[in-house]
Design a protein around this nucleic acid. Structure first.
Lengths: 166, 166
DNA sequence: ATTGAAAAAGATGGCCA
DNA sequence: TGGCCATCTTTTTCAAT
């Protein structure tokens, strides 16, 4: 496993909060020089701990007001590669999670309206040997912004409440 | 609805691919001056179309190898606020989607191992009046990297395949 | 591994078309 | 709006510890 110290974890947290922070700002916060911070961030990219940086977008403001999760069931034992291939045919599919157990996959979908969502689901049903779908309409989303997976090797306390971060 | 032109959409796509791109790089790609690009990006932040920038992290490399979705069912009609509150008690919960219909919510969970996941689910069951859970273990994830929600007002072509982008 | 300094690149704000 | 210019900040590299 990758070994990172507390400063590395602080940098991860800072970058998760705002990926466009400057190195100098992060350097000030963690108490290192700019060059040292850059080296650490570069190293985490090389290690594959940081896989990229992305913009968070309010798709509803772009006219894509519908969000849904659809569970997919396949005939027989479809290989993961085939599941991904079939679910990818619709550009409205944002993410695909292949799962162990009852639904074979869970796909995240963005659509303009219900009619559009219906089209996307129909497309999924026809792609590959999908035997059944079940769709969950998303009403509200809450996402943790300060994910901080420090000390992953020792057991967590039973319940450590974390403040909401709207 | 927010009105953005093609250049704005190009900028969104570029920032989704790499949120740490420089303004000068984006300016070159879209054929505008640096100042003009900065002004457009600032505007999209003001409009709330861009809600932030974040680092993408490989949690498995940090020792959090288990990813799961858990469906939650509540007794009676639990208000959204209560669902979010109860699901937030576990720091391992990454995101909560309240849904219309059968499961009342879908929560995304990151854990170190199966035992840890079990603890988290137990915590969720005890928080609030959860009547039932069903957990989907995630085996593989595919995420669209080039989400490009242009032209949201006219119908999409029936099936426009998009190349995989891992 | 970290620092400090110098050179290069980029960001920012004002002003005019 | 967009472009241009002047200035300031940040990034990046490199030698030294």
């Amino acid at each position: 496993m990758t070994d990172l110290d507390d400063i590395d974890h602080s940098l991860l947290r800072l970058l998760r909060q705002d990926a466009r922070r400057t190195f100098s700002e992060m350097a000030e916060k963690v108490g290192l020089s700019v060059a040292a911070v850059k080296r650490r961030v570069d190293r985490m990219r090389d290690l594959g701990v940081i896989t990229g940086f992305t913009a968070q977008i309010d798709y509803a403001k772009l006219g894509w007001g519908i969000e849904a999760f659809t569970e997919l069931r396949y005939a027989g034992t479809a290989p993961v590669s085939e599941i991904i291939r079939t679910a990818t045919v619709a550009p409205e599919v944002q993410a695909i999670y292949t799962t162990a157990g009852d639904p074979d996959a869970l796909v995240s979908i963005r659509a303009r309206d219900m009619r559009h969502l219906q089209q996307v689901i129909d497309t999924l049903r026809r792609a590959g040997n999908v035997t059944g779908t079940k769709t969950l309409m998303v009403m509200d989303v809450w996402t943790r912004s300060d994910m901080d997976p420090t000390t992953p090797t020792r057991p967590l306390s039973p319940t450590r409440p974390t403040p909401r971060t709207p």
